[in-house]
Amino acid sequence: MSPYAIRCVDVVRDFKSVRALDHISFDVPSGIVFGFLGPNGAGKSTLIRVLLGLTMPTTGRTEVFGVDPARDGDAARRQCGALLEHHGLYERLTALQNLDFFARAWRLPPATRSARVQELLTRFGLWDRRHDKVGTWSRGMKQKLAIARSVLHRPPLVFLDEPTAGLDPVASAALRDDLARLATDEGVTVFLTTHNLAEAERLCAQVGVIRAGRLAGLGSPAELRERRTTAALHLRADGLADQVWSALGSAPGVSRAARNGDNDVRIDLADPARVPELVEWLVGQGVRIHEVRRERATFEDAFLDLIDRQEERK
């Protein structure tokens, strides 16, 4: 199997006067949970459609396990399961009928079809409601059924568009565990979009951030946090005389300093590597330091920073 589940090379997708995808290039390694984050209308769903061969890129090229969906959509889709923007369930049919239909659509052999459907309905706690019309279900139950449908044929790549939307916290946590196990135990690549940054940080090995069709950032959540333009230091100290305070702005590695009370100082670092030098300088100025604490950028900070910077570039 290809080491990359997804490859995008300079993908552009225009809709009349709107550029939905603007020279997107990135790779998704196989067997990980990849998060694709961005504000509403950023182009996340459009990219998923392109990767499924449901929409053609205007220019550029994509690959799903080495197959170009624009040239051979069926071969690409064969390897994919999808929960798209809408759950896509037939509300006039029962849960059993829905999964049976999709199992037939995916050409699951008759011998294994029923067992697989039962396995998934049981795993997602829906077996007792299998004869109910899906239209009578809650949003969360429909979401679970749609996720079950997306993994029905055991695809090596699953697209999940906001999979935990509408789920209660317990169900969300259970789903996150399921998705993590899919990747680690079964080697399935999960490409998910979510607005829940905490979920993305917890679940995703890698994350891509998209804004207005352009890729704003790519890396693991930890890498994106570290790359945030400023880091900060919290200091609890006394002996900060006025002349020390006025010289602090030009001290080693400092871009800005602000007081949070008499003895608490927040220092924005221009160069985080110079923290030891800064501490030495402060001590040299007669400052008595009681506590030094590095403020790590949160993932949310990193995400918002990437989005703002992308906006500035426009």
Partner: peptide, 14 residues
């Protein structure tokens, strides 16, 4: 209208 078309097209059905 019922938002099932996209999911249907994402299957292997020709």
């Amino acid at each position: 209208e019922r938002h099932t078309l996209e999911t249907l097209l994402a299957t292997r059905l020709p």
